[in-house]
């Protein structure tokens, strides 16, 4: 007998072999399946709850952060912002305002020729800055303004030659329509 014949003999013997399982096997299987499915549903529900809790926690944490609160307030999506956050934001915004004011003041003081009295109107935002905050910025600004209110004093302090030269030069360059009032210093040479 060849191996192929032997294989066919055995295969034919066991082909479509069926054995009836025990009667309680079906119920045991489906009870186990139900338990597994129930447990799976519970795990899924717990997972969803954990995700929601983490989301709420992160949301609350982000809302408590002043920087984020300030950023979010611009788009109007966040209605409630803590008062501490607002105060902090105002303070941070006031710092560059001081810098913006002081920078043109200093340049104006240096170039006294283009000075006009109308520019001497004090900036209400700067003047009304409360001095109680512990900085002397407003005092410094007021001092600068006082200096600007007495231009003659400033010009007197300049070297005489330079002032005369500059004033003459500028009077030549000035357009005809405009009337220039220039200080004049005359020096007599021997």
């Amino acid at each position: 007998m060849s191996t192929e014949q032997f294989d066919q003999y055995v295969t034919g013997m066991f082909a479509n072999e069926t054995v009836q399982p025990p009667a309680d096997a079906e119920d045991a299987l489906f009870q186990r399946m139900n338990k597994m499915r129930k447990r799976k549903r519970q795990i899924q529900a717990m997972g969803a709850a954990v995700v929601i809790c983490v989301g709420v926690f992160i949301g609350a944490h982000v809302a408590g952060d002043p920087k984020n609160a300030a950023e979010n307030s611009t788009d109007g999506s966040r209605a409630i912002v803590p008062s501490t956050a607002i105060t902090a934001t105002d303070k941070t915004e006031s710092v560059p305002q001081k810098e913006d004011v002081s920078q043109p003041m200093s340049t104006t003081a240096e170039s006294m020729e283009t000075f006009e009295p109308s520019n001497l109107e004090p900036n209400p935002t700067v003047v009304s800055e409360p001095s109680s905050e512990g900085n002397d910025f407003s005092i410094q600004v007021e001092a600068n303004l006082k200096e600007k209110r007495s231009p003659m004093h400033q010009i007197d302090a300049l070297p005489a030659r330079t002032a005369a030269y500059d004033s003459g030069l500028r009077s030549l360059q000035a357009p005809e329509e405009e009337t220039w009032v220039l200080p004049a210093v005359v020096k007599v040479k021997d």
Binding site: V19, Q20, P21, A25
Partner: peptide
């Protein structure tokens, strides 16, 4: 299950 369990059990 009823249809295929005899084959599976075999």
């Amino acid at each position: 299950y009823r249809r295929y369990s005899p084959m599976m059990f075999g």
